[in-house]
Design a binder for these strands. Structure first.
Lengths: 179, 179
DNA sequence: GGCTCCATGTAAGGAGTTACATGATTCA
DNA sequence: TGAATCATGTAACTCCTTACATGGAGCC
């Protein structure tokens, strides 16, 4: 019983908020401060359906007034699969993840000097702006065990600070090399 | 004329190694030290075909002996699209990227104390191991403008060092909280 | 009454994964 | 001679993206 990264995260979200609706899961993705997660209904709802079909997620319908809603929770199997998904770290996951800015720096030399400087300025600006947001993040106040979400937010802050430091070094290098 | 992240990277690789074969592009992905890039022939070859169809990549067949091979290079349009792909940084790219370890830490509290410690140990171990590799990385010796590839490798080192620092803080937090 | 958010989806098309397929070259 | 690497793909399947569709609830 293996799950994809997306399914693993969905199990995690349900675990931290259960009982909760599919919409709550969707919102967590849409408000995620991390770049790269799919946040489309066309990805989340089918994934939840798969997890229900496989018996990892229990659901009962929950009517508040006329508005239909569904209450999701982890089954015992689902909780076990979540724990295994977390614990099974592969070697490759030790690597640095995809960073769209770092990716672009690979080919920065294809730009002329002015465009290189412009790129680095913009990269610093968007990173600083997201860093401020990340520093204010309190995780998900409605989640149980919020300390892990806060710890994760601090991890993002560390990553963004590292990127900022690196961008400044790079800026100096480019200035010296071409200026 | 927009390209996906994968197509953008392919344009970049071709730019840095042109003229080069599709196999060289494929190899760059397979040897990428970054977690999350697709490295399958079923992704790369069709992507290259799309770029050829759109006129971003020129190709001429190149026979060394009996082995057929194709020599790819960027067209003028392709080079312009590469530059635009690099320069068009969206706001969201300022955010921290997906990190499978950080993702899992979100739900670390679903493990019991021993498993949490085990997770953190393993996370440190795989990160340290990849950090050593990243420190040795010299980019792609056969590429033109290798300084950007080296700069990128330093960026990965920064990111991994930040993760290691964060994991150690987290380890202390878990030890104090539960121990 | 209209706007925004809550809440749940589906459909078409595009992209990626896994596995399979083929054949040449090089080195032990 | 066999294994590894070079070199190029295809096919079936799954998954994701984009766009569309539908309604209730609360508020100004």
């Amino acid at each position: 019983m293996d799950v994809t990264e997306l399914e693993g995260v969905i199990l995690g979200i349900i675990w931290s908020r259960q009982p909760c609706s599919p919409y709550v899961v969707l919102s967590r993705f849409q408000r995620s401060p991390t770049w790269g997660w799919s946040s489309s209904t066309g990805a989340i709802y089918p994934a939840i359906r798969r997890l229900k079909t496989r018996g990892l997620v229990d659901h009962r319908s929950d009517l508040n007034g006329k508005r239909r809603s569904e209450a999701l929770s982890l089954s015992a199997t689902g909780a076990a699969v979540l724990r295994r998904w977390i614990s099974n770290l592969s070697e490759g996951m030790g690597s640095a993840g995809i960073d769209p800015i770092r990716t672009r720096v690979n080919y920065l030399a294809s730009l002329d000097f002015d465009a290189q400087i412009e790129f680095l300025d913009r990269a610093e600006e968007v990173t600083r702006s997201r860093l401020e947001l990340a520093r204010k993040s309190k995780g998900d106040p409605e989640a149980q065990h919020n300390w892990t979400l806060q710890a994760t937010a601090r991890g993002a802050v560390h990553q963004l600070e590292a990127r900022l430091k690196w961008l400044r070094e790079l800026r100096e290098l480019v200035d010296r090399g071409n200026g």
